[in-house]
């Protein structure tokens, strides 16, 4: 079976990157609504708990809104570090809820899935930053 961008069972969460970018650009309420529907869409294509991705995406966007700067201009370092925390937190919550009652231990989950997945998703997140840099983050502000 071939999975897009999959490396050793790890795939980047592109929807997570999308909703995090939205949360850095938009107000909290529309960002949460977008995250909810994006998460629901992700849930539709999986056989596991329907609503889990929607729940974690809404929570992470709410948390991400505290990282939003008033100028909405972000340096690469700030963006990377905050994304690292947010992606890690998201994967932690998602996998923790999913693995509840399962046989796979938390440590194994952390080492073999959460950390590699966080780093892999972050790489795509940074790529998105570099591609969208001019369009999204560094638009000149009109001074009257």
């Amino acid at each position: 079976m071939i999975y897009l961008f999959a490396i050793y069972n790890i795939t980047p969460d592109l929807i997570l990157i999308f909703v995090l970018i939205i949360s850095y650009k938009e107000e909290r309420t529309p960002a949460m609504l977008i995250a909810f529907f994006a998460g629901l869409l992700q849930d539709v294509f999986s056989a596991d708990f329907f609503g889990l991705a929607a729940l974690t995406k809404v929570i992470i966007v709410f948390v991400a809104s505290f990282f939003q700067l008033p100028t909405k201009k972000y340096s690469l370092l700030y963006y990377t570090m905050s994304f690292l925390f947010l992606i890690f937190f998201h994967d932690l919550v998602y996998q923790f809820i999913y693995a509840l009652g399962g046989e796979i231990g938390f440590f194994k989950l952390l080492i073999f899935y959460i950390l590699p997945s966080t780093i892999y998703t972050l790489i795509f997140g940074v790529m998105a930053y570099l591609i969208l840099k001019r369009k999204l983050w560094q638009k000149p502000i009109n001074v009257e």
């Binding site: 609504l33 609503g51 729940l55 809404v58 929570i59």
Partner: peptide, 16 residues
């Protein structure tokens, strides 16, 4: 914002 968050969390959790 908090009310919207609460509302969406309740819906998601109900679905789960």
């Amino acid at each position: 914002d908090y009310l919207v968050l609460l509302f969406l969390v309740i819906i998601s959790m109900s679905l789960v």
